[in-house]
Design a protein around this nucleic acid. Structure first.
Lengths: 343, 343
DNA sequence: CTGTTAGCGCTTTCAG
DNA sequence: CTGAAAGCGCTAACAG
């Protein structure tokens, strides 16, 4: 359509042979010249480089992969791109790989086992060097099995099979961290609005909260109130906490969204945050955590780091150092206005 | 590490030759059998299929690609995976491709031109059949040029070069749609809290709003108030609208986040929504739009459809039917409680 | 119906 | 220092 100059706008890209011909050498020499091998004279090398440049030569990685035996490619299998978990994880992985020579194939299986199989076949056909499987829940997921020809790392949702390699968020530590912060700023009467109790995340956070309270010699105010992960539940839960009548000076919410709902209700009731009640939550989901008034102190699970770690584990396995078992990534406290006036 | 049975846990995957040997035929016959060619006897075919199965044979797409000349692969270049725009677009594209035999390479250039070049080189090296470039702003972006050997489609952020192919959101239509809905439910005194005025999105929406108001014989209440895309600005903007003193019965907010802020302030002031003032916004960002009280009526830009369209355009270009120019995808009204009591 | 041959683009011995 | 030849895994002619 719009051909001009030396660079071909369409049509097949230049091949090494064409470069070699233009430079007046053999393909072998051209290859050496382009790959920085020492067995080429300076002038020849320059001639080859010029030719390559003139033809906008880009080596065909497919051909290289066939020889070398590995494609420099990794498959990323996710279940919900919508989710705020998958994306940072994906970024971390892409980052860790992208620095090197590895490219990432993205596949979304939409929670569908059939589609998942289909994608895995396609990825193996493309001879990916490894597979990263990202779940959207913390609940363990079915293993892909051990007969795959490439290393597999499960992220966020661990594999239910201990022999697999998994990277997860440390929800217990997160629960502890939240309570420790509240205790650190002098709160003693701490309530908990939990998420959906069918999620391991909710149960683990509860365990962490309980442990940290015990460490501090405190007792939780009221039971952990379970619901869903929504703002609406945050309102309902906060309402229940206030209605219970027991004095409270802090609330741990299982997600930023729940905290938003709680904040909402507390303001309606004229409760000051953090003056009367401090609020802390989990996820540190940017727009939610920073859009509220006051902004939310939140526990960040370092998803991006989880993605990076997954990439590293793939590399390690490729290098012959597999690391079976589950690794937990430490969470991080991000302090904002819902727990401290200064911040 | 954990080898057993017939399927190799590691080591090179089985090749066609191995399958052929196991089945006692030539590679050519094996190839025909596996690819459903008619020139093979039923018994032979079955023998080959069995052998392939026993070796968990997966054809090497790289080799196939080298022959066929195309890799069945597309590059997706994005600038912000965080963004709520890129993800649905990406899903739409992955969907449209995934149905067929195409896999998607994901690359995030982090707004960095160097990194972008690097990624493009890598993708071209892998012989992608096409490139989809997703921007995070509606503002036009620099073209990648016309000397690339594969078709390129720009999404969300169009190319500044008219000769390129772009798919964008129709912000003018969105502005109209918002006003038409408000007028349809009987509102006459409409104000506008705009986003960041350096964004084409904000300017286009304003144009659409103005046009629809004119069509209805109405005049906007007060100026379009420009700010940022945040909840904080939504509060400030709503405050300004109320302070201006002119009666208002509806506010168009340039994003769901702005609308959340506005809702927040209106409630503080005892203004009922939608009773006293209806609120409508753009983006229809799930958790934000449905988490508020009342839920937000919002204009959805059909990002997923944009992604699909981009994929289709790549296919079309590959089939020799390029479509230069910019295509706008029609937005869609999603009605919720912030404009109607019934919904 | 089946097998032989050639070759996709590249790298790597191994001679010259 | 350079080139000829072999081969990665697969498919598409062509013979047989």
């Amino acid at each position: 359509m719009n051909s001009h100059g030396g660079a071909p706008s369409r049509g097949k890209p230049a091949t090494l042979r064409q470069v070699a011909e233009l430079a007046g050498v053999s393909t072998a020499t051209a290859s050496k010249a382009l790959n920085g091998r020492q067995q080429v004279s300076a002038t020849t090398r320059q001639r080859v480089l010029d030719a390559a440049d003139r033809l906008s030569f880009t080596p065909n990685s497919l051909a290289q992969a066939m020889l070398h035996g590995s494609s420099g490619t990794v498959g990323l299998l996710t279940h919900d791109l919508e989710g705020r978990f998958s994306i940072p994880i994906l970024m971390g992985a892409e980052d860790a790989f992208g620095a090197g020579q590895t490219s990432v194939f993205l596949c979304d299986s939409r929670e569908d086992a059939i589609r998942e199989r289909h994608h895995i076949r396609a990825l193996l056909g493309r001879r990916v060097d490894g597979l990263i499987v990202v779940g959207s829940q913390t609940n363990p997921r079915r293993s892909l099995g051990h007969d795959l020809p490439v290393p597999v790392v499960y992220v966020y949702a661990p594999s239910s099979d201990e022999r697999d390699t998994s990277v997860i968020a440390d929800n217990v530590a997160a629960g502890r961290l939240a309570v420790q912060h509240l205790v650190g700023i002098g709160r003693r009467r701490i309530a908990h609005i939990a998420g959906d109790p069918t999620y391991a995340a909710a149960r683990d956070r509860e365990a962490g909260i309980g442990a940290a309270l015990a460490d501090a010699g405190l007792t939780q105010v009221g039971p952990s109130r379970s619901g869903s992960w929504s703002e609406a539940w945050g309102r309902t839960g906060a309402h229940a906490v206030l209605e219970a009548g027991e004095p409270v000076d802090a609330i741990v919410c299982d997600s930023d969204q729940i905290a938003r709902g709680a904040l909402d209700l507390l303001r309606d009731r004229g409760v000051r945050v953090p003056g009367d009640i401090a609020v802390i939550s989990f996820d540190n989901w940017g727009p939610f955590a920073t859009g509220s008034r006051p902004q939310l102190t939140s526990i960040d699970f370092n998803f991006q780091q989880m993605g990076r770690r997954a990439a590293e584990l793939i590399f390690a396995a490729l290098a012959g150092e597999p690391a079976a078992g589950t690794q937990a990534i430490a969470p991080r406290l991000v302090i904002r206005g819902s727990t401290t006036v200064g911040a």
